[in-house]
C-alpha cells in the first residue's frame, strides 16, 4: 500500500470512530489542518523524481478532498444526534391546555343579519333604514290598512302617543322609500320590530325582521318566487326550493306566505320542519296597487313585490335554539357557543 492510501485509510477510520463533535474536529485538524499529516506527506514530494511529483500531488489532494467530505457528512450526523439529545430534555406535555385569547364573537342575530345582507346586496338590493319609533301612518295607513280592520289584530302595538308607535313591521320603510326614490327600485332593510305580546319561548315583544321589495316594469309573482329561490339558496343551500300558499296582508295583492324545503332533512322530515319537509318562512306578494298609486306610481307601467321574514328564525333553525328569549338574555354560556 502506498503511503497516501495508508494515511487516508487511517484517517477515514478515525472519522468514523469520532462520537463527539469536538473529537471529529480534532481528527479533522490532525489530518487535514495546515500542519496536519497530509501537509507533512506533501512535503515529502521533494524525495520523488520530477516525473512522479505531479501524480503524487494530485493523489494527495484527491485523498484530502474525499476525507473532507467524509468529515462534513459525519459532522451533520453528529449535529443531528446532538440536537435530538438536547431537544429530548426539552420535551413538553402538549396535552396541557393552549393559551386562551380574548376573541370577539358576533351575536347570532348579527351573524344572520350579515348573511342576509350579503345575499340581498348580491342580488342588487340597496339597504335602507327607517326609524323604529315610527309614525303611525307609515306602519299602517301607508301600507293600505283600512281603518279599524281586523288585520291589525295580529299586530298589538306599543304607542308613544297618538301619532307615534314602535313599528310592528319593517315593511314600514316602504312609504318612506317611495317618498324619496323613484322606480326602478330594489330596496331592503333589516331591523327591530315590536309587538305588545306576551313573552314566551316563541314570542317576544321585540324581534328582528327583514323586509325587501322591488318595483320595476313587468314585475310579477314568478319574479318574486325566483328571487326568493335565489335568496333561499344563498342562505340555506343551492337545493332549497320555495313554495307559495295564498295568504293575506293588506299591503300585497295577491298575497302569499312562502315556505322553503327543509334544508336539514332533504325532505325526509325532521324536528325543524316538524316532519312536513317544508318550513314556513314569511309573507310576500305583489305590492298593493293602492300603495303605488298613493305615490303617483303608474301601476300600468310599474309593478312590484315585497317579502319579509323573521331574523331570529334563522339561527333558531341553524343552531336548533328552542327559546327566543335566549337571544336577549346574553348569557355567556349561550353567546360563547357561537364563534361567529
Amino acid at each position: 500500500m502506498n503511503p497516501i492510501e495508508e494515511l487516508r485509510a487511517k484517517a477515514e477510520e478515525e472519522i468514523e470512530r469520532a462520537e463527539q463533535l469536538d473529537a471529529l474536529r480534532a481528527v479533522e485538524i490532525r489530518y487535514l489542518g495546515k500542519s496536519g499529516e497530509f501537509t507533512a506527506l506533501l512535503r515529502t514530494v521533494g524525495t520523488l523524481s520530477p516525473e512522479e511529483r505531479p501524480a503524487f500531488g494530485k493523489a494527495v489532494n484527491e485523498a484530502k478532498e474525499q476525507l473532507q467530505s467524509l468529515v462534513e457528512e459525519r459532522r451533520s450526523q453528529l449535529e443531528l444526534t446532538e440536537e435530538r439529545r438536547v431537544a429530548e430534555r426539552e420535551r413538553i406535555d402538549l396535552t396541557m391546555p393552549g393559551r386562551r385569547f380574548r376573541v370577539g364573537i358576533r351575536h347570532p342575530i348579527t351573524e344572520a343579519e350579515e348573511r342576509i345582507k350579503a345575499a340581498l346586496i348580491g342580488l342588487g338590493f340597496e339597504f335602507f333604514e327607517g326609524p323604529e319609533l315610527e309614525e303611525a301612518k307609515y306602519n299602517f295607513e301607508a301600507l293600505n290598512y283600512p281603518p279599524d280592520h281586523p288585520a291589525m289584530d295580529d299586530q298589538d302595538t306599543f304607542y308613544v302617543d297618538d301619532h307615534r308607535l314602535m313599528r310592528t313591521q319593517c315593511t314600514a320603510i316602504q312609504g318612506r322609500v317611495f317618498e324619496q326614490k323613484q322606480p326602478p327600485l330594489r330596496v331592503f332593510t333589516v331591523g327591530r320590530c315590536y309587538r305588545n305580546e306576551a313573552v314566551d319561548r316563541t314570542h317576544g315583544h321585540t324581534f328582528h325582521q327583514v323586509d325587501a321589495f322591488m318595483v320595476d316594469e313587468g314585475i310579477n309573482m314568478a319574479h318574486l318566487k325566483g328571487t326568493l329561490r335565489a335568496f333561499a339558496s344563498a342562505m340555506f343551500g343551492a337545493d332549497t326550493r320555495v313554495r307559495f300558499r295564498p295568504d293575506y296582508f293588506p299591503f300585497v295583492e295577491p298575497g302569499v306566505d312562502y315556505s322553503i324545503s327543509c334544508p336539514f332533512c332533504a325532505g325526509a322530515g325532521c324536528a325543524v320542519c316538524k316532519g312536513t319537509a317544508w318550513i314556513e318562512l314569511g309573507g310576500a306578494g305583489l305590492i298593493h296597487p293602492n300603495i303605488l298609486r298613493a305615490h303617483d306610481i303608474d301601476t300600468e307601467r310599474w309593478t312590484g313585490w315585497a317579502f319579509g321574514l323573521g331574523v331570529e328564525r334563522i339561527p333558531m333553525m341553524q343552531y336548533q335554539i328552542d327559546d327566543l328569549r335566549l337571544f336577549y338574555d346574553n348569557d355567556s354560556r349561550f353567546l360563547e357557543q357561537f364563534r361567529a
Binding site: E126, F128, P184
Partner: peptide, 20 residues
Amino acid sequence: GYENMPERLPEGSTPQGGES
C-alpha cells in the same frame, strides 16, 4: 294553484345594491 307558478329572476335595469 301556485305550485304551477314558474320561477324567474327579475330582468331589466339592476340598480346598484349596497349598504348605507
